[in-house]
Design a protein around this nucleic acid. Structure first.
Lengths: 278, 278
DNA sequence: TAATCTAACAACGA
DNA sequence: CTCGTTGTTAGATT
């Protein structure tokens, strides 16, 4: 789950959980916690949800008493609301029950994090303390975006999916903005022209907003179990290996970058020769 | 300069400089210092040498008042004694003059370090605090050597030239011990057999001792300007690209590993197929 | 020929 | 689709 899904989930959790008090907690995979389960439980039970907010790929759940529950869905997790335990999903790794009988379950696909940190110590929480700005924040202007790229010799894809640089973009939402800007993912960030940087800025925000309006990725469920509407029909080149580029018709290529893949139109996103053999 | 040259230099400096008091200091390249030159000078002048000892690729010069002068010759430097300034070399980057008129000059080839640290703060000196054991220390037993390799998935050459793991071996003295042990430099450390580890341990110590007895590398000068006697005739495969292996006659190959080169006999130091394509 | 640091990248494990 | 650790590499440094 990336920015749009986390934003949607956070909104729904905020509306559904605000002012509710934790009554009970089950955790089948205590390794995802940042402290022993019994300690975690006794700190959490009795706390009341004050607000739920997105922060990059994380959900920040503010509780009374100054505690914050930090939730990262890892490589995907179903986070599902229930009105009463009778209608709760059968399979889950974590379950939080509130005093009114409602609650939510988390079913993890691979790994996830559920950390409890006092808000005065958030700065010491290494996984979230260094998170960069959100690309949809009104304060995130083009000139701030330029500063991120400025002088960086890294591959632009690696830079923009680095959560310390920009929050919320992972290996799903990076492909289409790069394509729309005509920028190859391996281009060094400091070699982009002003025009390319501007197009990339616009494309990132456009694509994320599109998905947000569509309800997020088609293969992810929201808090109420509904799938999003942003699927393959919405993609330009992402996950379209071998299909024609929507602009020039050239076959989309899938290239490996370390452990992740990228999808590019080799014609619309050319890689300068000197970066092919650096 | 690596372990043998540093050991020889330290011995000679210890004998020549012990009990002498620093009277004057010239530094043409103050960036090699760990503080501004005037501060460095006022701390050093007036100090008396208590002892000089080798530590990996570093020379530790203990002074009275608890100060230690840490000297690293970088990629090679001439460190030359003079009895009186009249006979001092003309070209140098640093000059230390003692109260009796003797002293030494340093002429750097590329980079070097000359750091002044209080002995109570040596643990905070990042460049030396983590230095590993000396392979010629009597306490450095075969079983300690096995522990260094144990479970490490790194290439054995990179591991053994890592100063935090083992002190004093750089890209000159690593080639022949690996050859004598029949171990390819790219072998993962944890794949060595007990027999190979034993041969490697013996070879490292043998090669370093041979060079020590020969006066160090033939292209390096000692404190009195004399060249060492350990030259190409002493090497087995090091820097012998294209020449026949002394054991099997196969042509020695020069291979690149990152930014350094290695010299190997492809027959005596085979690389298992799975490590060729990891 | 030789040293070290750093940023960036890759592989692996959890 | 995650993040963190470990190890590797290229580039820079006076």
């Amino acid at each position: 789950m990336e920015l749009p899904e986390i934003v949607i989930l956070s909104r729904q959790m905020d509306e559904a959980l605000r002012d509710k008090t934790v009554a009970r907690l089950e955790v089948a995979n205590p390794k995802c916690l940042n402290m022993p389960l019994d300690e975690f439980r006794s700190a959490l039970v009795g706390r009341t949800v004050e607000a739920v907010e997105p922060r990059g790929k994380w959900v920040f759940i503010s509780l009374d008493g100054g505690l914050t529950l930090l939730y990262n869905t890892g490589m995907g997790a179903d986070t599902l609301y229930f009105k009463s335990e009778a209608e709760a999903p059968e399979k889950y790794h974590q379950k939080v029950v509130f005093s009114d009988g409602s609650g939510f379950t988390v079913r993890v696909y691979w790994f996830s994090y559920l950390h409890l940190v006092h808000k005065d110590r958030l700065g010491e929480h290494r996984l979230t303390a260094g998170i960069g700005p959100s690309p949809l924040d009104p304060a995130f202007t083009l000139s701030r975006f330029r500063e991120l790229l400025d002088g960086k010799r890294r591959a632009v894809k690696g830079l923009l999916t680095d959560q310390r640089v920009l929050a919320g973009i992972g290996n799903v939402y990076i492909h289409d903005p790069l394509f729309l800007a005509g920028v190859h993912p391996l281009r060094k960030a400091n070699t982009l022209t002003d025009a390319e940087t501007g197009k990339l800025y616009d494309s990132i925000r456009m694509v994320l907003n599109e998905s947000l309006e569509a309800g997020g990725l088609a293969y992810e469920r929201n808090f109420y179990g509904e799938m999003g509407g942003y699927g393959k029909g919405s993609y330009r080149v992402a996950y379209k290996e071998g299909e024609p580029c929507p602009v020039c018709g050239t076959a989309i290529e899938k290239i490996r970058m370390g452990s992740t893949s990228s999808y590019v139109c080799p014609r619309c996103q050319p890689l300068p020769r000197e970066e092919t053999f650096p």
